[in-house]
Amino acid sequence: MTRLAVPKTYKLYIGGKFPRSESGRVYEVASASGSFLANAAQASRKDARDAVAAARAAVGGWSGTTAYNRGQVLYRIAELLEGRRAQFVSEVADAEGVTTAAATAQVDTAIDRWVWYAGWADKYAQVAGNGNPVAGPYFNISVPEPTGVVAVIAPQDSSLLGFVSALAPALVAGNTVVIVASQSMPLPAISLSEVLATSDVPGGVVNILTGSPAEIAPWLASHADVNAIDLVGAGDLDWVALQIDAAETLKRVLAPENGPDAAAPALSRITAFTETKTVWHTKGLL
């Protein structure tokens, strides 16, 4: 007797919950060979709005944790991802149509990337910050601080690695993220949200939308409560218009990148979403 297949419903990830799109829309996700994989939620502008609200609410808690603790939380994501390697290998292989070996390599690289960025959490401030020279009996110190809510358009031609490469650095400094997954290959990203939900990442720190970046990105770029936007995967969109929208509210903007090296690991991806605060402090008065 054949067993009835139990297809999975892929939903959004907003504020630590898995809602359907407010619009009720879904779209078909096909494998690289064209066969039906699943229906994914097609997020609307209102889902983006809700995601930004959830991200804003989470800024205080996440940016308020110690750098060491944030590093531990990000490392925990890598640990859980390692435990579900087989699932992600098969999903990546289905989505991208690559061999199991290539999919395994991609998942391993994604896990390693979490570890790499986790390590930076309590170290980037030492590198990006500075004790400034002064001519008096006090200290003058510049420290990087998280900018707040970061919107990310994930790379569109990579299902997992590109997504992780864009997401992880934005979290390191204590920002919260609203990220739009690859439109054609969103399933590994949503599965990653299950990892995030069961790891120690507080709800609202990462919010994942699936659907059309062309539809959602303008709302995120123009949203006055978004502090920065990473357009790494927006190369096929009208990204100049998005930059102009973002400039209206003085957002930090990262430009699109193409090819397999898009969002390559770099300290600059962490510092791009920080603001430098400079303070002075007295030396001992004795």
Binding site: W219, S222, A224
Partner: peptide
């Protein structure tokens, strides 16, 4: 109101 007037979402900073 600001959303209706400007066409984009506003935020608590405003």
């Amino acid at each position: 109101r600001q959303k209706l007037a400007t066409g984009h979402y506003s935020g608590p900073d405003y």
